[in-house]
């Protein structure tokens, strides 16, 4: 090792450490980026998530048609639906609609084929629980009649807003508007 290398090593060491220290010093006046979840945020973290956020699944049974599209789309079979056609009334009867959130991987493949937007992701993500059984969401408490879309627009005042929300969920995925638009 020549004297030139020796001196250059010392010089480089001092220079680069000096520069690095200047950068770290500049961070003393930069604002921290930490989000102090869950209690010290300005708004609930759930409310700050984007529309497409894939959180815990929810089902609006009022507009579920019992078409089983979600059950078929699910790659891990975490959705189990029992739907039977009533022989007399020719109506679909939903007897069971279970989602095992312990299995669910939040891929969103089930919400895509849903014709009414009944099964959809919510921005909720706090799913911790004490047992695996309690993670199975049983949506159908008692057998009920599946939704049958009418020919024209929905008139039932109780169902209409739910259906409107579900269809908007589908719409915003399909055509969300201009990505070049401003904030």
């Amino acid at each position: 090792m020549g004297l030139g290398t020796y001196v250059r090593n010392i010089r480089e060491t001092l220079e680069t450490i000096f520069e690095g220290m200047a950068i770290t010093a500049s961070h003393f006046v930069r604002k921290p980026f930490t989000i102090q979840y869950p209690d010290r945020t300005e708004i609930r973290v759930q409310d700050s998530l984007p529309f497409r956020y894939r959180g815990l699944l929810d089902v609006d049974l009022e507009i579920c048609t019992g078409c089983l599209a979600c059950e078929r789309a699910c790659p891990i079979d975490c959705i189990v639906i029992d739907a039977e056609k009533d022989k007399q009334t020719k109506e679909m009867i939903l007897k069971r609609f279970d989602i095992d959130l312990a299995k669910c991987m939040y891929c969103g493949l089930c919400s895509e084929p849903c014709p009414t937007g009944s099964i959809h992701h919510t921005p909720e993500f706090e799913g911790a629980d004490y047992s695996l059984e309690s993670l199975v969401r049983r949506f159908v408490k008692a057998p009920l009649v599946a939704y049958k879309p009418p020919k024209g627009p929905e008139t039932d005042p109780e169902v209409a807003p739910i259906l409107a929300r579900g269809l908007r969920y589908l719409d915003e995925f399909a055509s969300p508007g201009d990505p070049k638009a401003g904030e």
């Binding site: 497409r52 895509e112 995925f173 969300p176 508007g177 401003g182 904030e183």
Partner: peptide
Amino acid sequence: NYMRIGGCAWDLPPGFVG
């Protein structure tokens, strides 16, 4: 899980480019 066979699942959201 963004892409699908034949394209992408969703278009860019509003304001994304900016």
